[in-house]
Amino acid sequence: MREKNKRHVTLLILALTILGLFLANRFLDPYKVRVINLSGIYVTLGLSMNLINGMTGMFSLGHAGFMAVGAYTVGILTMPITMKEMNFFMQPIVPFLANVEWGFLPALIAAGLISALLGVLIGAPVLRLTDDYLAIATLGFAEIIRVVFTNTQSLTNGALGLKGIPNYTNTWWSWGVALVTIWFISYLMRGTYGKAFLAVREDEVAARAMGINLFKHKVMSFAFGCFFAGVAGGLMAGLLGTIDPNMFRITLTFNILLIVVLGGLGKIGGTIIAAVIVTAGMETLRFLDESMDLGFVQIKGIPGMRMVVFSIILIVAVILREKGLLRRPKGREFTYVKN
Protein backbone atom coordinates (compact mmCIF):
# COMPACT_ATOMS: atom_id res chain seq x y z
CA MET A 1 0.00 0.00 0.00
CA ARG A 2 2.65 2.48 1.04
CA GLU A 3 4.90 1.25 -1.73
CA LYS A 4 2.13 1.96 -4.19
CA ASN A 5 1.58 5.48 -2.84
CA LYS A 6 5.24 6.28 -3.25
CA ARG A 7 5.14 5.09 -6.81
CA HIS A 8 2.21 7.42 -7.42
CA VAL A 9 4.08 10.33 -5.89
CA THR A 10 7.07 9.55 -8.06
CA LEU A 11 4.96 9.40 -11.20
CA LEU A 12 3.20 12.61 -10.24
CA ILE A 13 6.50 14.45 -9.78
CA LEU A 14 7.73 13.05 -13.08
CA ALA A 15 4.56 14.19 -14.88
CA LEU A 16 4.74 17.65 -13.31
CA THR A 17 8.39 17.98 -14.34
CA ILE A 18 7.56 17.08 -17.93
CA LEU A 19 4.61 19.46 -17.97
CA GLY A 20 6.71 22.21 -16.39
CA LEU A 21 9.46 21.76 -18.99
CA PHE A 22 6.91 21.77 -21.78
CA LEU A 23 5.34 25.00 -20.54
CA ALA A 24 8.73 26.58 -19.94
CA ASN A 25 9.87 25.83 -23.49
CA ARG A 26 6.64 27.22 -24.84
CA PHE A 27 6.23 30.44 -22.90
CA LEU A 28 9.53 31.53 -21.35
CA ASP A 29 12.16 33.64 -23.03
CA PRO A 30 15.49 32.03 -24.04
CA TYR A 31 17.31 33.52 -21.06
CA LYS A 32 14.98 31.87 -18.55
CA VAL A 33 15.10 28.61 -20.48
CA ARG A 34 18.86 28.77 -20.24
CA VAL A 35 18.65 29.15 -16.46
CA ILE A 36 16.39 26.11 -16.38
CA ASN A 37 18.95 24.20 -18.42
CA LEU A 38 21.73 25.21 -16.07
CA SER A 39 19.64 24.17 -13.07
CA GLY A 40 19.19 20.71 -14.54
CA ILE A 41 22.91 20.37 -15.17
CA TYR A 42 23.71 21.54 -11.65
CA VAL A 43 21.28 18.99 -10.22
CA THR A 44 23.34 16.28 -11.92
CA LEU A 45 26.58 17.84 -10.77
CA GLY A 46 25.39 18.33 -7.21
CA LEU A 47 24.15 14.77 -6.93
CA SER A 48 27.29 13.28 -8.41
CA MET A 49 29.43 15.23 -5.97
CA ASN A 50 27.14 14.39 -3.10
CA LEU A 51 27.54 10.70 -3.89
CA ILE A 52 31.30 11.00 -3.47
CA ASN A 53 31.52 13.57 -0.68
CA GLY A 54 28.27 13.26 1.22
CA MET A 55 27.33 9.62 0.91
CA THR A 56 30.68 7.88 0.78
CA GLY A 57 32.45 10.50 2.85
CA MET A 58 35.38 11.08 0.53
CA PHE A 59 36.32 14.73 0.49
CA SER A 60 37.06 15.09 -3.21
CA LEU A 61 37.52 18.41 -4.97
CA GLY A 62 38.23 17.12 -8.44
CA HIS A 63 34.85 17.69 -9.99
CA ALA A 64 35.84 20.44 -12.40
CA GLY A 65 38.51 18.16 -13.84
CA PHE A 66 36.05 15.38 -14.58
CA MET A 67 33.61 17.89 -16.05
CA ALA A 68 36.35 19.14 -18.33
CA VAL A 69 36.99 15.62 -19.56
CA GLY A 70 33.28 15.16 -20.27
CA ALA A 71 32.90 18.55 -21.91
CA TYR A 72 35.87 18.02 -24.21
CA THR A 73 34.76 14.51 -25.09
CA VAL A 74 31.36 15.76 -26.17
CA GLY A 75 32.83 18.81 -27.85
CA ILE A 76 35.29 16.83 -29.97
CA LEU A 77 32.93 13.97 -30.76
CA THR A 78 29.89 16.00 -31.79
CA MET A 79 31.56 18.86 -33.62
CA PRO A 80 30.96 18.81 -37.41
CA ILE A 81 34.01 17.89 -39.47
CA THR A 82 34.24 21.26 -41.22
CA MET A 83 33.97 23.05 -37.90
CA LYS A 84 36.90 21.02 -36.62
CA GLU A 85 39.06 22.21 -39.48
CA MET A 86 38.18 25.80 -38.64
CA ASN A 87 38.88 25.33 -34.96
CA PHE A 88 42.21 23.60 -35.28
CA PHE A 89 44.07 26.17 -37.36
CA MET A 90 47.18 26.26 -35.20
CA GLN A 91 47.74 22.54 -35.45
CA PRO A 92 45.52 20.01 -37.16
CA ILE A 93 43.50 17.69 -34.97
CA VAL A 94 44.84 14.16 -34.43
CA PRO A 95 43.80 12.10 -37.48
CA PHE A 96 41.64 9.52 -35.71
CA LEU A 97 39.32 12.23 -34.39
CA ALA A 98 39.27 14.38 -37.52
CA ASN A 99 36.45 12.55 -39.22
CA VAL A 100 34.16 11.62 -36.37
CA GLU A 101 30.81 13.24 -35.86
CA TRP A 102 28.69 11.44 -33.32
CA GLY A 103 25.16 11.98 -32.14
CA PHE A 104 24.62 13.63 -28.77
CA LEU A 105 23.56 10.56 -26.81
CA PRO A 106 26.53 8.32 -27.71
CA ALA A 107 28.82 11.31 -27.14
CA LEU A 108 27.34 11.90 -23.67
CA ILE A 109 27.71 8.23 -22.79
CA ALA A 110 31.30 8.28 -24.03
CA ALA A 111 31.91 11.41 -21.94
CA GLY A 112 30.62 9.64 -18.85
CA LEU A 113 32.57 6.47 -19.50
CA ILE A 114 35.88 8.19 -20.21
CA SER A 115 35.42 10.33 -17.13
CA ALA A 116 34.59 7.27 -15.02
CA LEU A 117 37.57 5.38 -16.39
CA LEU A 118 39.79 8.30 -15.49
CA GLY A 119 38.12 8.35 -12.09
CA VAL A 120 39.13 4.72 -11.56
CA LEU A 121 42.70 5.39 -12.69
CA ILE A 122 43.04 8.43 -10.47
CA GLY A 123 41.04 6.91 -7.65
CA ALA A 124 43.11 3.75 -7.37
CA PRO A 125 46.14 5.49 -5.91
CA VAL A 126 44.47 8.60 -4.49
CA LEU A 127 41.53 7.15 -2.61
CA ARG A 128 43.87 5.56 -0.09
CA LEU A 129 44.24 9.04 1.30
CA THR A 130 41.65 10.47 3.64
CA ASP A 131 40.13 13.85 4.45
CA ASP A 132 42.23 16.90 3.63
CA TYR A 133 44.93 14.87 1.92
CA LEU A 134 42.38 13.45 -0.49
CA ALA A 135 40.99 16.94 -1.06
CA ILE A 136 44.43 18.29 -1.97
CA ALA A 137 45.25 15.34 -4.21
CA THR A 138 41.99 15.58 -6.16
CA LEU A 139 42.25 19.35 -6.37
CA GLY A 140 45.71 18.93 -7.83
CA PHE A 141 44.42 16.38 -10.26
CA ALA A 142 41.75 18.75 -11.56
CA GLU A 143 44.41 21.38 -12.11
CA ILE A 144 46.60 18.85 -13.94
CA ILE A 145 43.74 18.09 -16.31
CA ARG A 146 43.29 21.77 -17.01
CA VAL A 147 46.98 22.27 -17.68
CA VAL A 148 47.15 19.18 -19.86
CA PHE A 149 44.17 20.37 -21.89
CA THR A 150 45.82 23.74 -22.32
CA ASN A 151 48.89 22.10 -23.80
CA THR A 152 47.56 19.29 -25.96
CA GLN A 153 47.06 21.48 -28.98
CA SER A 154 46.25 18.75 -31.49
CA LEU A 155 43.72 17.09 -29.24
CA THR A 156 41.92 19.89 -27.41
CA ASN A 157 43.03 22.94 -29.39
CA GLY A 158 44.82 24.17 -26.27
CA ALA A 159 44.06 27.54 -24.77
CA LEU A 160 42.00 28.54 -27.82
CA GLY A 161 39.29 26.19 -26.72
CA LEU A 162 36.60 24.69 -28.89
CA LYS A 163 34.05 26.87 -30.61
CA GLY A 164 30.96 25.91 -32.53
CA ILE A 165 30.00 22.80 -30.60
CA PRO A 166 26.46 22.00 -31.75
CA ASN A 167 23.87 23.25 -29.26
CA TYR A 168 22.22 19.94 -28.65
CA THR A 169 21.46 20.63 -25.00
CA ASN A 170 17.88 21.66 -24.36
CA THR A 171 15.70 21.35 -21.31
CA TRP A 172 14.74 17.80 -22.24
CA TRP A 173 18.37 16.74 -22.29
CA SER A 174 19.47 18.58 -19.18
CA TRP A 175 16.49 17.56 -17.08
CA GLY A 176 16.32 14.11 -18.66
CA VAL A 177 19.86 13.46 -17.52
CA ALA A 178 19.07 15.01 -14.13
CA LEU A 179 16.12 12.62 -13.71
CA VAL A 180 18.26 9.64 -14.72
CA THR A 181 20.85 10.74 -12.15
CA ILE A 182 18.22 11.14 -9.45
CA TRP A 183 16.84 7.72 -10.27
CA PHE A 184 20.26 6.06 -10.39
CA ILE A 185 21.54 7.51 -7.15
CA SER A 186 18.27 7.00 -5.26
CA TYR A 187 18.14 3.37 -6.25
CA LEU A 188 21.84 2.90 -5.67
CA MET A 189 21.51 4.24 -2.14
CA ARG A 190 18.50 2.06 -1.52
CA GLY A 191 20.37 -1.14 -2.30
CA THR A 192 23.07 -2.83 -0.29
CA TYR A 193 25.94 -1.22 -2.18
CA GLY A 194 24.64 2.24 -1.35
CA LYS A 195 24.23 1.24 2.28
CA ALA A 196 27.80 -0.02 2.21
CA PHE A 197 28.92 3.41 0.94
CA LEU A 198 27.18 4.98 3.93
CA ALA A 199 28.90 2.48 6.21
CA VAL A 200 32.28 3.49 4.77
CA ARG A 201 31.42 7.11 5.50
CA GLU A 202 30.32 6.37 9.04
CA ASP A 203 33.21 4.21 10.21
CA GLU A 204 35.86 2.70 7.99
CA VAL A 205 37.20 0.33 10.62
CA ALA A 206 33.78 -1.08 11.39
CA ALA A 207 32.89 -1.26 7.70
CA ARG A 208 35.96 -3.37 7.00
CA ALA A 209 35.23 -5.60 9.97
CA MET A 210 31.79 -6.19 8.45
CA GLY A 211 33.45 -7.50 5.30
CA ILE A 212 33.16 -4.38 3.17
CA ASN A 213 36.12 -4.02 0.84
CA LEU A 214 36.92 -0.35 1.39
CA PHE A 215 38.98 0.11 -1.71
CA LYS A 216 36.48 -1.49 -4.05
CA HIS A 217 33.55 0.49 -2.67
CA LYS A 218 35.38 3.79 -2.64
CA VAL A 219 36.54 3.39 -6.22
CA MET A 220 33.05 2.29 -7.26
CA SER A 221 31.39 5.32 -5.70
CA PHE A 222 34.05 7.60 -7.11
CA ALA A 223 33.63 6.15 -10.61
CA PHE A 224 29.85 6.63 -10.51
CA GLY A 225 30.31 10.21 -9.34
CA CYS A 226 32.83 10.84 -12.11
CA PHE A 227 30.53 9.30 -14.69
CA PHE A 228 27.76 11.77 -13.94
CA ALA A 229 30.22 14.64 -13.63
CA GLY A 230 31.46 13.79 -17.12
CA VAL A 231 27.95 13.61 -18.54
CA ALA A 232 27.09 16.95 -16.93
CA GLY A 233 30.27 18.44 -18.39
CA GLY A 234 29.13 17.17 -21.78
CA LEU A 235 25.74 18.81 -21.34
CA MET A 236 27.49 22.02 -20.41
CA ALA A 237 29.51 21.87 -23.64
CA GLY A 238 26.33 21.29 -25.61
CA LEU A 239 24.65 24.20 -23.85
CA LEU A 240 27.41 26.79 -24.14
CA GLY A 241 28.73 25.79 -27.55
CA THR A 242 32.16 27.12 -26.57
CA ILE A 243 34.55 25.64 -24.06
CA ASP A 244 38.10 26.38 -23.03
CA PRO A 245 40.31 24.99 -20.27
CA ASN A 246 39.92 28.04 -18.06
CA MET A 247 36.22 27.37 -17.60
CA PHE A 248 37.11 24.40 -15.44
CA ARG A 249 38.85 26.17 -12.61
CA ILE A 250 38.52 25.39 -8.93
CA THR A 251 35.73 27.95 -8.57
CA LEU A 252 33.49 25.66 -10.59
CA THR A 253 34.11 22.84 -8.11
CA PHE A 254 33.30 25.21 -5.27
CA ASN A 255 30.02 26.21 -6.86
CA ILE A 256 29.02 22.56 -6.82
CA LEU A 257 30.35 22.08 -3.30
CA LEU A 258 28.19 25.01 -2.25
CA ILE A 259 25.12 23.23 -3.62
CA VAL A 260 26.08 20.03 -1.84
CA VAL A 261 26.66 21.72 1.50
CA LEU A 262 23.55 23.85 1.23
CA GLY A 263 21.46 20.84 0.25
CA GLY A 264 22.92 18.76 3.03
CA LEU A 265 25.66 16.17 2.79
CA GLY A 266 24.24 12.83 1.82
CA LYS A 267 20.78 14.15 0.96
CA ILE A 268 19.22 13.72 -2.44
CA GLY A 269 16.15 15.94 -2.11
CA GLY A 270 18.13 18.75 -0.52
CA THR A 271 20.70 18.71 -3.29
CA ILE A 272 18.06 18.96 -6.00
CA ILE A 273 16.42 21.94 -4.35
CA ALA A 274 19.74 23.63 -3.55
CA ALA A 275 20.93 23.18 -7.13
CA VAL A 276 17.87 24.96 -8.47
CA ILE A 277 17.94 27.70 -5.83
CA VAL A 278 21.66 28.40 -6.22
CA THR A 279 21.55 28.46 -10.02
CA ALA A 280 18.42 30.59 -10.19
CA GLY A 281 19.64 32.75 -7.29
CA MET A 282 22.95 33.53 -8.99
CA GLU A 283 20.97 34.84 -11.94
CA THR A 284 18.24 36.75 -10.13
CA LEU A 285 20.78 38.50 -7.92
CA ARG A 286 22.46 39.91 -11.00
CA PHE A 287 20.73 43.25 -10.43
CA LEU A 288 23.06 43.76 -7.45
CA ASP A 289 25.99 44.12 -9.83
CA GLU A 290 24.32 46.99 -11.62
CA SER A 291 23.98 50.54 -10.40
CA MET A 292 20.94 51.17 -8.28
CA ASP A 293 18.91 54.29 -7.75
CA LEU A 294 17.30 54.19 -4.32
CA GLY A 295 15.86 57.71 -4.70
CA PHE A 296 18.00 59.44 -2.08
CA VAL A 297 21.29 57.71 -2.87
CA GLN A 298 22.75 56.45 -6.06
CA ILE A 299 24.75 53.24 -5.65
CA LYS A 300 27.31 52.62 -8.31
CA GLY A 301 27.36 49.14 -9.70
CA ILE A 302 30.04 46.97 -8.12
CA PRO A 303 30.79 43.87 -10.16
CA GLY A 304 30.83 40.85 -7.86
CA MET A 305 28.38 42.36 -5.39
CA ARG A 306 25.97 39.47 -5.90
CA MET A 307 28.68 37.05 -4.84
CA VAL A 308 29.04 38.96 -1.58
CA VAL A 309 25.30 38.87 -0.97
CA PHE A 310 25.19 35.26 -1.95
CA SER A 311 27.96 34.39 0.47
CA ILE A 312 26.10 36.12 3.27
CA ILE A 313 22.97 34.16 2.45
CA LEU A 314 25.06 31.00 2.48
CA ILE A 315 26.60 31.76 5.86
CA VAL A 316 23.21 32.48 7.37
CA ALA A 317 21.79 29.32 5.83
CA VAL A 318 24.61 27.17 7.15
CA ILE A 319 24.30 28.63 10.66
CA LEU A 320 20.54 28.22 10.80
CA ARG A 321 20.41 24.89 9.05
CA GLU A 322 23.69 23.18 9.58
CA LYS A 323 22.40 19.89 8.29
CA GLY A 324 21.15 21.29 5.02
CA LEU A 325 17.99 22.99 3.85
CA LEU A 326 15.83 19.99 4.46
CA ARG A 327 15.97 18.57 7.89
CA ARG A 328 16.03 14.83 7.94
CA PRO A 329 12.79 13.32 9.18
CA LYS A 330 13.55 11.07 12.13
CA GLY A 331 16.67 9.19 11.21
CA ARG A 332 15.96 8.92 7.52
CA GLU A 333 17.34 10.33 4.36
CA PHE A 334 14.98 12.56 2.46
CA THR A 335 14.56 10.95 -0.89
CA TYR A 336 11.31 10.88 -2.64
CA VAL A 337 11.91 7.29 -3.61
CA LYS A 338 12.71 5.74 -0.29
CA ASN A 339 12.50 2.28 1.11
Binding site: Y193, K195, L198, A199, E202, D203, A207, M210, I212, G331
Partner: peptide, 17 residues
Protein backbone atom coordinates in the same frame (compact mmCIF):
# COMPACT_ATOMS: atom_id res chain seq x y z
CA UNK B 1 31.64 1.32 16.51
CA UNK B 2 28.17 1.46 15.06
CA UNK B 3 27.23 3.39 11.96
CA UNK B 4 25.84 6.12 14.16
CA UNK B 5 23.94 8.24 11.66
CA UNK B 6 22.20 5.26 10.12
CA UNK B 7 19.11 3.54 11.41
CA UNK B 8 19.18 0.46 13.60
CA UNK B 9 17.81 -1.64 10.76
CA UNK B 10 20.34 -0.28 8.28
CA UNK B 11 23.17 -1.15 10.66
CA UNK B 12 22.14 -4.78 10.71
CA UNK B 13 21.32 -4.78 7.01
CA UNK B 14 24.84 -3.59 6.15
CA UNK B 15 26.19 -6.63 7.96
CA UNK B 16 24.61 -8.71 5.18
CA UNK B 17 26.37 -6.87 2.40
Amino acid sequence: RLFGELTVLENVFIGNH
